[in-house]
Design a protein around this nucleic acid. Structure first.
Length: 567
RNA sequence: GCCCCCAUAGCUCAGUGGAUAGAGCACCGCCCUCCGGAGGCGGUGGCGCAGGUUCGAGUCCUGCUGGGGGCGCCA
């Protein structure tokens, strides 16, 4: 929230008050218009309040304009009534010049807020079963989850990254049975795991034991191997979890049993056909759900309820899970169950846990879809991707678009043509700034104290564009956090980098033959430093490095040597 | 049959009620005597269909069409 924005909003509220008009229930909307001719800020309040007041919007706007002009708001040079009744504020560039010290003063904290101060948020993501390597598509949840954690933390929340290990169900049994079968040269069971990695593991398993290991030995051995592999992959992409939560501990400590008892006690569990059911229909679910199967074992839902209760018991004020869209069917019953257990939803967050459903990733290779086939070689793992492309390119690729869209991840585009990845365009902007700083130092050009620099030298449209982007940045971050939409930061930083490259092209910073005045050099040196802060802060949220230098591209052919398709 | 998500330029996507819908790639042209050309500038080209709500709809609602994902005493 920039200062000028607050000033304008306050002035508009006062003008409404003086006109005996109500402030719209959603508050005063004040936005930068898309068209530059429409000024620096625009509000639609006249349109919103005119109808209930039975008045003409443009007349209301005219009254408000008179009051606002009388208020002598800083920087404001003109207020025009436009279209059906917009109020467009035209400001002197001085309002943008004020942004620069704001950015520099806050540095790494520029763009943060305290909106979520006091919240302890548990964010669970990835949580891939420890029965195989993380699939390339799982990289999406890794990147999105880590960036979202950063975003929530930027708003003042205490964020805890958690990975749930599904190590208690029959998945690991099927996994172990598959390993043993493969070790004996047999086909894995019907519901078992296939793929080359199982065969490789089976070979290693044979070497690890004298004689045939027991089912339990194979299970623990395989589990440990997969867990290690998963942790390694996540380390490679640069994500660290605060807690690796073992589902087993819930069963071992009787937490699952206690959940059933509690639900019975509250009258929300009942017996039917030898099983124990949750009356989830009373809490918004489409049907009741089984908690204890007729063979006496708990369902996944029962364990999941115990797990989420455990999280709340650890003092978190809000729980967020990032799940793939293929788990959509679990959401209603989990939320119904927690509700049945007496967990009250918070109005600002909705039901607990908050479940963010992300659409899946379609893997492509060379323009051809890669089916998630059981056959060997068709599995593309996150590790495969990381073997060919650096973590930054990988992460940014996953953060390019909103998670409501199925993402197409063409491994050939992200790897062999990785120079097309926008990450380099953005990182290059940061490296350029660092390069300019190095050159300035070499030439003995140093920055004066900011207070002694005349920022009014920044008048070029390219310079003002950069300042406009920087001014908008804190709100972009806040919206991205609130909307659980890290890709908005990606969108911002890509546009910002574009604006920087444009500035670089048109505006010389360092003294040379171009006729830059010493005063301009000083103002621009501070401007690029502010840009560096903006780029670095945004990239940090995305979990992408902001390099000070990048390797030069190898000289590419001039393109003239192309052989034509002569047969 | 029911539930969730999606449909914007040739392709991949931005745009979560505002005024003239934006990028990248691809295609067609330009720009290196000066801070890194991984760059800059211009051009071609678009909101699936039909209703509705609203002063105003790519955005909200309904229906349709077309994609994707779910609907177990699996996890």
């Amino acid at each position: 929230m920039t200062a000028i924005r607050d000033v304008l909003t306050t002035a508009i509220r006062a003008a409404l008050d003086d006109s005996d008009l109500p402030v719209p229930s959603a508050g005063v909307e004040l936005t930068p218009p898309r068209q530059r001719e429409h000024g620096d800020w625009a509000t639609n309040v006249a349109l919103q309040v005119a109808k209930p007041a039975g008045r003409n919007p443009r007349e209301v706007a005219a009254d408000l304009r008179d009051l606002l002009l009388g208020a002598a708001i800083p920087h404001v040079t003109e207020i025009e009534i436009a279209g059906p009744g917009f109020l467009n504020f035209h400001l002197a560039p001085s309002w943008l010049h004020d942004v620069l010290p704001d950015v520099l003063e806050h540095g790494p904290d520029y763009g943060t807020s305290e909106a979520l101060s006091g919240e302890r948020i548990n964010l669970e993501f990835v949580s891939a079963n420890p029965t195989g390597p993380i699939h390339a598509g799982g990289g999406r949840w890794t990147a999105v989850g880590d960036a979202l954690a950063n975003l929530l933390a930027s708003q003042g929340a205490d964020v805890h990254r958690e990975y749930l290990l599904n190590d208690a169900g029959n998945q690991l049994d099927a996994f172990a049975a598959s390993l043993l079968a493969r070790m004996r040269g047999e086909e894995p069971p019907e519901d078992g795991y296939q793929g080359q990695y199982i065969a490789d593991l089976a070979d290693a398993l044979r070497d690890a034991f004298d004689g045939e290991p027991s089912h339990a030995d194979a299970l623990e051995w395989g589990y440990a191997r997969m867990l290690q592999e998963i942790r390694t992959d996540l380390e490679r992409i640069g994500v660290r979890f605060d807690t690796w939560f073992s589902e087993r501990t819930l069963h071992a400590q009787g937490a699952v049993d206690r959940v059933i008892e509690e639900l019975r006690h509250r009258g929300h569990a009942f017996d039917h056909e030898g099983a124990v059911w949750l009356r989830s229909t009373e809490f918004g679910d489409t049907r009741d759900r089984v908690l204890i199967k007729s063979d006496g074992s708990p369902t996944y839902l029962a364990a999941d309820l115990a797990y989420h209760l455990d999280k709340l018991g650890r003092g978190f004020t809000h729980l967020i899970n990032i799940w793939g869209a293929d788990h959509h069917g679990q959401v209603a019953s989990l939320q119904a169950g927690l509700r049945a257990l007496g967990v009250e939803p918070r109005p600002e967050f909705g039901p607990e846990p908050e479940v963010i459903l992300g659409q899946l990733v379609n893997l492509m290779r060379g323009g051809e879809p890669v089916r998630i086939s059981k056959r060997a070689g068709d599995i593309i793992t996150l590790a495969d991707v990381l073997d060919e492309v650096d973590a930054d390119a990988c992460r940014l690729t996953f953060l390019l678009q909103g998670i409501d869209h199925v993402q197409t991840f063409d491994i050939d585009v992200v790897t062999s043509q990785s120079m097309e990845n926008p990450v380099y365009y953005v990182q290059y902007a940061h490296a350029r700034i660092a390069s300019m700083a190095r050159l300035a130092a070499e030439r003995g050009v140093s920055r004066s104290e900011l207070s002694e620099v005349d920022l009014a030298e920044l008048t070029h449209e390219r310079e003002l564009d950069l300042l406009r982007s920087l001014a908008a940045y804190p709100e972009v971050v806040a919206d991205a956090a609130h909307g659980r939409a890290p890709h908005r930061v990606t969108t911002w930083v890509r546009e910002f980098a574009g604006r920087f490259h444009g500035f670089y092209h048109d505006c010389r910073v360092l003294p040379g033959e171009s006729g830059v005045t010493p005063a301009q050099t000083q103002a621009r040196l501070w401007l690029i430093e502010a840009c560096r802060v903006g780029l670095a802060n945004a990239l940090a949220l995305l979990g992408v490095h902001a390099p000070d230098r990048m390797d030069r591209l190898p000289e590419s052919d001039e393109g003239g040597a192309q052989e034509s398709a002569s047969a």
